[in-house]
């Protein structure tokens, strides 16, 4: 008698094949979110807001209600949904360009209001869908199509650390930076997502999980190389850990 030890989460469509690039971590993160929602018995009570970027592909993959915001506006759209539906679980899923560049005002203001939502912020230091342009989180010296000589602080400034920036605000309850570079960190990421959702259920206010990931396609590296880059460069600039927990 075979024992079933693993099955795809009910949070992802059963026969869906993801279109994410090899080595991309979006698929893994959506799986984690699906598992958490399933474990918390929230799949029927969730409304998710997808940012603009590669993550938007997921709107076809997930099984719960979801919508897409204009680029950068996910936290504003989520605010409208949550204020009118306080009994639903509302989370946004946003990349670095979406959350930290075009949507900086919306993200910071939702955090500052202590909006009772959960933000999943996926930081890979580059614009993916549009093809490798410089992001607010691009590392110094890292090449991008709009910074062909690499990010130059004299012209482009330095990478933005959103967890630390939001940590200057009073209202947010939970800010943690994680990664999916190792099985252990992936489990930590799942636990962080769960905590962010639990905070919302408990009416505690704004939570954000920043997940540092890779973009092999636009980094110009193969999946293994990009994992190395992530470990050696990205995590130096964006150290993992709980930045704030007042839950």
């Amino acid at each position: 008698m075979m024992k079933k030890v693993y099955t795809r989460t009910a949070g992802i469509e059963a026969d869906m094949v993801s279109g994410f690039c090899p080595g991309c971590m979006h698929g893994l993160i959506f799986k984690l979110i699906g598992e958490v929602l399933e474990e918390m018995n929230l799949l029927e009570e969730t409304i998710s807001v997808q940012g603009v970027g590669c993550c938007g592909l997921a709107m076809e993959y997930v099984t719960y209600d979801n919508t897409t915001a204009p680029h950068g506006r996910a936290c504003a759209v989520a605010t409208g949904i949550k204020r009118t539906n306080p009994d639903k679980l509302v989370y946004t899923y946003q990349g670095d360009g979406d959350l930290a560049s075009i949507g900086l005002a919306e993200s910071m203001s939702a955090a500052n209001r202590g909006e009772n939502i959960s933000v999943i912020f996926v930081n890979n230091g580059i614009y993916g869908m549009t093809g490798g342009q410089m992001a607010p989180t691009t590392l110094v010296g890292m090449k991008a199509t709009t910074a062909p000589e690499g990010r130059n602080p004299a012209m482009h400034g330095y990478p933005m650390h959103m967890c630390e920036i939001m940590n200057q605000l009073t209202a947010p309850v939970y800010l943690e930076r994680t990664s999916c570079n190792t099985p252990a960190n992936t489990r930590r990421t799942k636990a962080a997502i769960k905590k962010a959702f639990q905070n919302q259920i408990d009416q505690k206010g704004f939570s954000m999980v920043e997940i540092v990931t890779s973009c092999p396609t636009n980094w110009g590296l193969n999946p293994m190389e990009s994992l190395e880059f992530l470990n050696e460069k990205m995590l130096k600039e964006f150290p993992l850990g709980v930045i704030r927990d007042r839950s």
């Binding site: 409304i47 807001v49 919508t67 915001a69 204009p70 506006r73 504003a76 759209v77 989520a78 605010t79 409208g80 949904i81 204020r83 009118t84 539906n85 005002a105 919306e106 203001s109």
Partner: peptide, 15 residues
């Protein structure tokens, strides 16, 4: 911009 997008969000739930 944020305001219209909040409205966009709320209206999506039929409010």
């Amino acid at each position: 911009i944020a305001s219209i997008n909040m409205v966009y969000g709320a209206a999506q739930t039929g409010v």
